[in-house]
Amino acid sequence: MATMQLVWTLTGPGEAVPARAPDEARLVAAARKGDRDAFTELVQRNQRRVFRLAGRFFQQRADVEDTAQETFLRAWSRLDTYRERAPFEHWLTRICLNCCYTRLRREKGTLPLPANEPAVHGDPDAALEVRGLLSRLRPSDRFLLLLLEGEGWSVEEVAGRLGWSQVNVRVRAHRARKRLRRLLEEGGGP
């Protein structure tokens, strides 16, 4: 583990990793005592990052917002389990990823097409083809591939951020890539 330098963060690629805010401990302590304003301050500081992460898995505003709400509500109700060994943001990342995973699995493989909002930046045709590819993958495969290929996280990083074992992630990643390979071999890819 000594060689594993994990950066547990909701920060996007290229963005600077924020240091722990000096008054974070005070806000967490106050929130633990039921101070909703203190918790709302923590929400305001982290909401963009939570939306960014949820937006990796869900394309419609309602889904992204529901997942973000669920993340913060779960954090609020489980503040007692936050040990403060890592910044609040890292703990929130884990909760957010677990909310995304649970929600994806509830979808049972369906990937609704976007109704009103532009789903993806860039070439719309290519984006639609990738959506087609993703829709043919199991939710758990889609989840891992979006972390590995989309976020560019390593197996070690995925394991650390989700709280899963590296073996577990490695096995799941292997299966997900195998299924993606088969889809690409069938010519079903973009």
Partner: peptide, 19 residues
């Protein structure tokens, strides 16, 4: 080629929604 296109698509696959 299909794999590379898929990987680029996965990197761009993002709702880009702000609160």
């Amino acid at each position: 080629e299909r794999l590379q296109t898929a990987r680029q698509g996965l990197r761009r696959h993002h709702a880009g929604i702000e609160p």
